[in-house]
Design a protein around this nucleic acid. Structure first.
Lengths: 193, 193
DNA sequence: ATCATTTCTTATCCTACATCAAGTGTGGTG
DNA sequence: CACCACACTTGATGTAGGATAAGAAATGAT
């Protein structure tokens, strides 16, 4: 399937976009390939683009005072990734975004985002919904972290995002769950007994 | 100061709203008083209003499988509180919103929110920024919970929101920090040594 | 194919925080 | 004003997950 077709299918999940509108949007999305381990965004940079993943996988992570990485987002194909706060506020990002596999992206710059709102007002709703989803995902992640054990959180992730498990190294899964790789390893060991 | 003046000052923190626009908005905000311990929203209800607090204080909380409450938001005067997800999606809320003191509110219903966007388009940006802020607050809360000790989180809260400490019972502060009241009590004891 | 790097596991010990239990204020309401 | 519910503290004990260290297994680069 062609990249833009992927994109359209994704938009259709949230808003009813027409072929004509799709043609108006297309020029604003810039294709980009990103090799494994290469960064789309560095900590301290202003996040200029929101990326739609058509192939491969990316992660967003921050680094705390002790130098430990914390994965905040994981994105496979058909998902969006960006530091929305930096993108929308224009402030430096506290997150790096990096490819975990060789990846193909469609990039939409903050500037083009504004243009798109004018051309296709429906997109405003789309991105509001994207922001909403990012918000509730984070809120649920927070709630589960303070009320459930890491083992339960891992099981839930297994059930809801089993594709992640096959594609994403466990060190990043562990970090996303808020635990160390060693702990995740123990959890997995106990589960299989 | 009059309630609507409070509101206008709050709006001005994010968008440049005129007196004329303010007059257009005013009719959509319904004043409400809420006695201590009374609920604005129950778990399972669809959250119908977003509340701007002009007097008193409210908290939002969920209840986990074990029956434990988890405070997710605290709002004093000049702050907004709602289950944004339920409000915007129309789905039942997993959060209750309750007054901690006798309070005075201005309520904006989900329906009136849509009306306001038509009357004063600038408000769309205001509420997008409000959502953005809710998102990054939650994300930072999550990050600090997995990378910092409870003592450090408490100290940061002291520095950034010292007014909360004087007004909000420590059991709710503890819950907001993701720890038990007993743990917070020990942290406070150790700090004063 | 081989070497280097990264990922994953296992074991031991340790710490932050939870849980349970009990007792001391204190403020709101009959 | 007395009572009761609620807020807060303190102590004893338990435990999930962290830190450290080390080796095994898998993966990628040349």
């Amino acid at each position: 399937m062609e990249q833009l077709e992927f994109l359209r299918n994704n938009l259709l999940e949230k808003v009813n976009i027409s072929s004509e509108e799709m043609e108006l949007l297309a020029p604003y999305f810039i294709p980009k390939t990103l090799k494994r381990k290469k960064e789309l965004n560095r900590i301290g940079d202003v996040c200029k683009d929101i990326a739609f993943v058509t192939k491969g996988s990316l992660r967003a992570y921050s680094i705390d005072d002790k130098g430990t990485e914390h994965v905040s987002q994981l994105a496979l194909e058909n998902h969006w990734i960006a530091d929305l706060y930096s993108l929308l506020s224009g402030k430096p990002s506290e997150f790096a975004i990096e490819a975990m596999e060789d990846s193909e992206l469609l990039l939409l710059s903050a500037h083009n985002l504004d243009c798109i709102y004018l051309k296709v007002p429906l997109m405003e709703r789309f991105f509001r919904k994207l922001l909403e989803k990012a918000y509730i995902t984070t809120l649920q992640r927070f709630n589960s972290t303070i009320s459930e054990t890491a083992a339960i959180r891992y099981k839930n992730l297994l059930q809801n995002n089993s594709d992640l498990l096959h594609r994403v190294p466990l060190i990043y899964i562990a970090s996303y769950l808020g635990i160390t790789p060693e702990s995740l390893s123990r959890i997995r060991k106990n589960m299989s007994l």
